[in-house]
Write a protein that binds this DNA or RNA. Structure first.
Lengths: 198, 198
DNA sequence: TGACAAACAGAACGCTCGTTCTGTAGATTA
DNA sequence: TAATCTACAGAACGAGCGTTCTGTTTGTCA
C-alpha cells in the first residue's frame, strides 16, 4: 500500500456529525463525538477527526477550536440520468457536490432575499411565499425579472420597454402592466429562487 | 428598580459574536470571547453570556456546550435591504436566515439535490433545470411531490391514489398519468426547490 | 498459518475550560 | 455625602478537554 493511499473515513460518522450540527449549530467535544459515533476511546475520535480535517470536512479556528471545514456543508447532487438501480448516491459516480448558498449567491454583499407576495408572476414559476434571491443594483436589462419599488412597496415583474419608456409586466394575464409615472426605481435583479415545501 | 427590569445587554457584543460565528460557524470559548469583546475578565464574560442566554440569543446543548439560541440568527431582512426612510411591507414579515442551506435542509444526511428534466411539473412551478431538494425516504403521503424511480430514471410527480393503487400524476395536462406495474419505488419526497436564473 | 496493518480500547497527563468568589472604580439614587 | 448598584478586574479551583502512548482485536493477504 502506497503512502498516498487516502485514509478510510466512515461516511456514517460524517452524517451523524452533520445531523448533530444541523440541530445544535456547534461541533461537539471529543467525548460527545465518541458517544455520537459509538466509539469509547477519545484517541480514536482524535484520529477520525484528523482524517476528516485532512479531507476538508473539518477545520480549526485560529484559536485551535474545531469547526466545520469547507466541504462540511456540501450536498449531494444527483443527476436524473443516474442509473438508479442501487439508489446509494454515496458510492454512485454520477454526483457532484455543491452548497446551495454557493450555487445561488455570487456577490454576498449585494445579495438579499425577498419574500414573494401574490401570484402576479405565477407563469414564471414564481409562487407566493417563495424567497427571491436578488442582486441589488439600480438598473437592469430588458427581459430580466426585477424587484422594483412602486408606491413604497416591493414588486416583482419583468422589465420591458414600451414606447421609449420602461414598464413592469406581470407573468399572469389577470394583472395589468405597470407603467410608472416618472422614474422607475429598481431595487435589484432576480438571480434565483428558493422555495420550501415541507 | 423592580426585579422585572430587563438586564442590559450590549448589542455590539452580540454583533461581534455573530460576525465571529459567520466566519467560523462555531461559538468560541470564554477566553476568546473576552478578547473578542475587549474584556479581560472571564467572570464578566460569563455574566454577559448569562444575559444573552436569558434573552434567547444563546443556549446550551444537552452536553452543556454553549450554542446559538433561537434568536441568534434573527435579523430583519429590512435591515440589510431597505433604502433609507422607506416603509417596507413586502419584507417586514420575517427574518433573515443564516444560510439558504439551513432554510432548506433539515436532515443533511438524508437530503440530496436532483436536477429537474422536462416540464411535466410546470403547473406546480417546477421548471426544467431547477434543483429539487429531496428528503430521501422509501414512502410518502398521497398529495406530496415525490421523486420516484421509473425505468431506471428519476421522475418528479405528485403521488396520488387510484383504485387502490398508487399513481404518479404530472402537473401538466400534456403528460399522461404514470401507473407503475408492480411496486412503485420512491426515492424521496420534495422538501424544497432551488432555481438559478442568472 | 503467520505477518502485518487497520480499527479500536484504556489510561495517564498537562492544560484550558467555565465557575465562583472577592475587590474596585464610576455612576446613580436618597 | 453616604449608600447602592453596575460594570468590570483578578485570582483560585476543580472538572473536563484533547493529546499521546501502549495495548488488543480483527481482517487481509501471501
Amino acid at each position: 500500500m502506497s503512502l498516498n493511499t487516502p485514509r478510510q473515513l466512515d461516511p456514517a460518522y460524517l452524517e451523524k456529525l452533520q445531523d448533530y450540527y444541523a440541530e445544535h449549530k456547534v461541533i461537539p467535544s471529543y467525548s460527545v463525538l465518541a458517544t455520537l459515533w459509538g466509539i469509547s476511546a477519545k484517541s480514536w475520535v482524535s484520529e477520525c477527526v484528523r482524517r476528516f480535517e485532512e479531507a476538508g470536512y473539518l477545520d480549526w479556528t485560529p484559536d485551535k477550536q474545531l469547526k466545520p471545514g469547507g466541504r462540511f456543508f456540501e450536498r449531494r447532487l444527483a443527476d436524473s440520468t443516474v442509473q438508479a438501480g442501487l439508489p446509494n448516491p454515496a458510492i454512485s459516480d454520477g454526483y457532484d457536490l455543491v452548497t446551495i448558498d454557493d450555487y445561488l449567491v455570487r456577490v454576498p454583499s449585494r445579495t438579499s432575499l425577498v419574500r414573494v407576495k401574490g401570484d402576479s408572476m405565477i407563469d414564471a414559476g414564481i409562487h407566493e411565499g417563495d424567497l427571491l434571491v436578488v442582486e441589488q443594483q439600480p438598473n437592469a436589462n430588458v427581459g430580466e425579472i426585477v424587484v422594483a419599488i412602486v408606491d413604497n412597496e416591493f414588486t416583482v415583474k419583468y422589465l420591458e420597454r414600451e414606447k421609449g419608456g420602461f414598464v413592469l409586466k406581470p407573468a399572469n394575464k389577470a394583472y395589468p402592466v405597470i407603467r410608472p409615472r416618472g422614474r422607475l426605481e429598481i431595487f435589484g435583479v432576480m438571480a434565483g429562487l428558493v422555495r420550501r415545501t415541507r
